[in-house]
């Protein structure tokens, strides 16, 4: 080997000396966990698209009832059961106010002498579907976010205490959770709605009564995992209090799974709210959520399919968007869990 090396022409190799000054230099800017997660999330087209779509839906839910010239609950009986009509798009042959009457296709707007355009049509009482749908979206989203937030709060505190203090406390708390998770969610929700007056608050409470157990389990698992690691031991050795360890050292590590879990709680809550409304345990008229709108529309599906189609479409869009955002966030925040 050495001979060959000697035979090489001069200047083939340069000696590289290690510069002690530069060796420790970080060549790329350091990326925090959240920047890294955001970078991963940005690569996920489905999640970003869903995020934008969801943003648009939220904006519409807030603005829709405001920009519509009709209030969600005002009834104009003479304008009942009009199909959707949107200016400009009507020229394409869709949303042109043509509906079937007695088996024939007629422009119902002309027939009923309606000058205005109802973008999403009207329902059986002549209420504007455009403002109703967005108002309903508002209510559905509010219920879902409130339920998810309460679930998160209770779940994190319960799971955190149970995992952090361990031992006897953990034992007792986990037995309680085990029994609670044994009770089917469906049964609890229905029973609770039945004893409370149906309304937004009742639905939120019913959804959160057992909903938090999932979150508490996840948080407990994570806390158990992290609390025995060296950095927590180091913090404790340096005299950090329990509160400081929980907030400064454990929380940032558990935050990822909390967010992921919440993102999957929200579509679940939206579904349950719509489900309850559909079996007649939801909001009472004139309040409307997407679920009650779908329920109302279902009764007229044979003659006025647009009344169910639009809220069902919006509901499905929200559900799809949330599932995709949830998937994307899970991949971004916890690459190990990626499927």
């Amino acid at each position: 080997m050495t001979q060959n090396y000697d035979n090489l022409p001069q200047g083939s190799f340069d000696r590289i000396t290690r510069d002690t000054e530069k060796a420790e230099r970080i060549s790329k800017p350091s990326v925090s966990f959240w920047q890294d997660a955001w970078r991963r999330l940005k690569k996920n087209k489905g999640a970003i698209f869903s995020l934008i779509l969801f943003g648009l839906i939220v904006i519409m839910a807030l603005l829709g009832p405001v920009i519509s010239p009709y209030s969600p609950n005002s009834q104009t009986i003479t304008h009942a059961n009009l199909p959707p009509k949107i200016p400009v798009i009507e020229n394409l042959g869709i949303f042109d106010g043509v509906g079937t009457l007695g088996g024939k296709e007629v422009d119902l707007y002309e027939m009923k002498n309606v000058e205005q355009n109802y973008w999403f049509g009207t329902d059986g009482l002549g209420r504007d579907m455009f403002s109703r749908v967005w108002k309903g979206t508002q209510v559905s989203l509010f219920i879902a976010f409130a339920a998810a937030a309460i679930d998160m709060l209770i779940g994190v505190i319960y799971g955190g205490i149970s995992g952090y203090f361990g031992g006897r406390v953990d034992d007792i708390m986990q037995r309680i959770v085990e029994i609670l998770t044994g009770i089917p969610n469906l049964v609890v929700v229905i029973l609770f709605i039945m004893i409370m007056d149906p309304g937004i608050l009742a639905i939120i409470i019913a959804l959160t009564i057992t909903g938090w157990t999932g979150m508490s389990r996840v948080v407990r698992g994570q806390v158990l995992k992290y609390k025995s690691q060296e950095f927590v031991l180091a913090a404790r050795t340096l005299g950090a209090t329990d509160g400081r360890i929980i907030w400064k050292h454990l929380m940032p590590n558990v935050l990822g799974v909390i967010i992921i879990n919440t993102m999957f709680t929200i579509p679940g809550a939206i579904f349950f709210e719509a489900f309850l409304s559909f079996i007649g345990l939801g909001l009472q008229a004139p309040d409307a959520s997407l679920g009650t709108l779908i329920n109302d529309g279902y009764k007229l599906i044979q003659y006025q399919p647009h009344i169910i189609a639009i809220p069902a479409f919006v509901l499905s869009l929200i559900m799809i968007a949330f599932n995709l955002i949830g998937d994307g966030l899970r991949d971004a925040l916890d690459p190990k869990m990626k499927d």
């Binding site: 489900f275 279902y298 559900m319 799809i320 949330f322 599932n323 995709l324």
Partner: peptide, 13 residues
């Protein structure tokens, strides 16, 4: 994704 997202009653109707 569609199967998980769309509620069964929407799909049924």
């Amino acid at each position: 994704i569609i199967g998980i997202s769309i509620p069964s009653f929407v799909f049924a109707s």
